Computed example of a mutant assay.
Amino acid sequence: MKLRELKREDMAGMLEWMTDPYIRQNFRFGSDKIDEKSVLSFIQNAGSALRAPIEGNTIHYAIADEESDEYLGTISLKAISIANKHAEYAISLRRKAQRKGIAIEATKEILRLAFVKYNLERVYLNVFSDNIPAIKLYEKCGLVLEGEFRNHLVVEGEYKSLKWYSILRTEYQGKYGIPINN
């Protein structure tokens, strides 16, 4: 597994997970407006992984197979705050890439980039409270439960609760033993 910039060739794989009902059940937005044009626009506006983050922007990385470079999913640092040194984490994998340890590897790498390369203090996320596989991933990678917003969203006519997780710079350093310059 490696992280790289998104490419036009990733469009088919992105459309695959974005329209997969099994994967979509854990997302808030509908798939009715997703088409090749919108995915291509997403790729073009993804932000370069080679430049420094900009206040308020998002950097998306493709999760790709180390050998073949096949697109497996997307992992992101969203709503980056340079002033407050935090960003929101997000990940989505194609079904064929799930349950193979790829999400753990990709999450460890995006956290390394967040704390070592981008010098952030905090990475956070929210997840549907009933998304147990994702919760297990986040906890395994060292994210800490901060709290729950009960019945916070209505998704397809049903109330959903959100759990909020984060990992701080010092927690990351303690878990992974990677020195971080301040």
Rank of each mutant, 00 (worst) to 15 (best):
K2G: 15
L6S: 09
R8S: 12
D10S: 04
M11V: 10
M11N: 11
A12W: 13
L15A: 10
W17S: 04
T19D: 07
D20P: 02
F27K: 03
G30W: 00
S31N: 12
D32H: 12
I34Q: 03
S38Y: 00
F42T: 05
Q44T: 05
A46N: 05
A46F: 00
A46G: 01
S48L: 05
A49R: 11
A49E: 09
A49C: 11
A49H: 08
R51M: 09
R51F: 08
A52P: 03
P53W: 02
E55Q: 11
N57S: 14
N57L: 02
H60N: 03
I63N: 01
D65H: 07
D69W: 10
I75S: 00
S76Y: 00
K78Q: 04
K78M: 00
I80L: 06
A83Y: 04
K85Q: 15
H86D: 14
E88N: 01
S92R: 11
S92L: 09
L93C: 08
Q98I: 05
R99H: 14
A103Q: 02
A103N: 07
I104V: 13
I104A: 06
E105K: 11
E105R: 01
K108I: 00
K108R: 14
E109C: 03
A114K: 06
V116W: 12
K117N: 15
Y118C: 04
Y118M: 12
L125S: 07
L125I: 05
F128T: 11
F128H: 06
D130P: 03
P133L: 05
I135N: 02
K136L: 11
K136V: 07
L137A: 13
L137H: 02
E139C: 09
E139H: 07
E139M: 15
K140S: 09
C141E: 10
C141V: 13
L143P: 07
V144L: 07
L145T: 14
E146R: 11
G147E: 12
E148T: 15
E148L: 03
E158G: 14
E158C: 04
E158S: 14
K160Q: 08
S161P: 12
L162D: 08
K163D: 12
W164F: 15
Y165R: 06
Y165G: 01
I167D: 07
I167S: 08
I167K: 12
L168E: 13
T170S: 14
Q173T: 09
Q173L: 04
Q173A: 06
G174P: 02
Y176V: 10
Y176C: 08
G177M: 03
G177I: 01
I178N: 14
I178Y: 13
I178T: 15
